[in-house]
Measured scan of single mutants.
Amino acid sequence: MEQGTVKWFNAEKGSGFIERENGDDVFVHFSAIQGDGFKSLDEGQAVTFDVEEGQRGPQAANVQKA
């Protein structure tokens, strides 16, 4: 798993970007967020995640709040 920080997340659209510790920013969709309840992330929040190849390039998967 990688570690990173939420660069921004739009709760209305359900997507945003995570700033990786090593590498380019990666797209995140709300469906990749693990946990119960409303799936959203806050700017500056620390997260851990896997990276998968999506239709438009790398994207975060199995996102967990650190």
Rank of each mutant, 00 (worst) to 15 (best):
M1C: 12
M1L: 13
M1F: 11
E2V: 12
E2M: 13
E2T: 09
E2Y: 15
Q3P: 06
Q3W: 15
Q3V: 13
G4E: 01
G4A: 01
G4N: 00
T5L: 10
T5P: 01
T5D: 05
T5V: 13
T5M: 09
T5H: 12
T5N: 07
V6R: 00
V6T: 02
K7N: 04
K7G: 03
W8Q: 05
W8G: 05
W8R: 05
W8T: 04
W8M: 03
F9H: 05
F9D: 06
F9Q: 05
N10P: 06
N10K: 02
A11V: 13
E12C: 15
E12I: 12
E12L: 13
E12N: 12
K13C: 14
K13E: 08
K13H: 12
K13M: 11
G14K: 01
G14I: 03
G14T: 03
S15R: 10
S15N: 10
S15C: 15
S15A: 12
G16I: 02
G16N: 01
F17G: 01
F17A: 03
F17C: 11
F17Y: 08
I18K: 04
I18Q: 01
I18N: 01
E19N: 08
E19P: 01
E19G: 10
R20Y: 07
R20N: 05
E21D: 11
E21K: 13
N22T: 10
N22H: 11
N22L: 09
G23W: 03
G23A: 09
G23H: 06
D24Y: 10
D24C: 13
D24L: 12
D24M: 12
D25N: 10
D25F: 14
D25C: 15
V26F: 04
F27T: 03
F27W: 09
F27I: 02
V28S: 00
V28E: 05
H29P: 00
H29S: 04
F30A: 08
F30P: 06
F30M: 08
F30C: 09
S31V: 04
S31D: 06
S31T: 12
S31L: 07
S31W: 06
S31F: 05
S31N: 07
A32T: 04
A32L: 00
A32K: 07
A32S: 10
A32P: 05
I33N: 02
Q34I: 14
Q34V: 14
Q34T: 11
Q34K: 11
G35F: 08
G35V: 10
D36S: 12
D36F: 11
D36L: 12
D36V: 12
G37R: 01
G37M: 05
G37A: 06
F38T: 06
F38V: 07
K39G: 05
K39S: 06
K39L: 10
K39W: 06
K39A: 06
S40V: 09
S40H: 10
S40L: 07
S40F: 12
S40N: 06
S40A: 08
S40P: 04
L41P: 00
L41S: 02
D42Y: 15
D42I: 15
D42C: 15
D42P: 07
D42A: 14
D42L: 15
E43C: 15
E43V: 15
G44I: 02
G44M: 02
G44L: 02
G44R: 05
Q45Y: 04
Q45L: 08
Q45G: 05
Q45H: 09
Q45S: 08
A46G: 08
A46F: 14
A46K: 14
A46R: 14
V47D: 03
V47Y: 00
V47L: 03
T48G: 04
T48A: 06
T48W: 14
F49T: 02
F49N: 01
D50S: 13
D50H: 13
D50Y: 15
D50I: 14
V51H: 00
E53R: 08
E53K: 09
E53S: 10
G54R: 08
G54M: 08
G54H: 07
Q55M: 13
Q55D: 12
Q55R: 15
Q55E: 13
R56S: 10
R56N: 12
R56T: 08
R56Y: 15
R56E: 08
R56F: 15
G57A: 04
P58V: 09
P58Y: 08
P58Q: 09
P58C: 08
Q59M: 09
Q59E: 08
A60F: 02
A60S: 03
A61L: 10
N62T: 04
N62I: 03
N62H: 08
N62P: 01
V63G: 00
V63P: 02
Q64F: 07
Q64E: 08
Q64G: 07
Q64I: 11
Q64Y: 08
Q64C: 07
A66S: 12
A66P: 07
A66W: 09
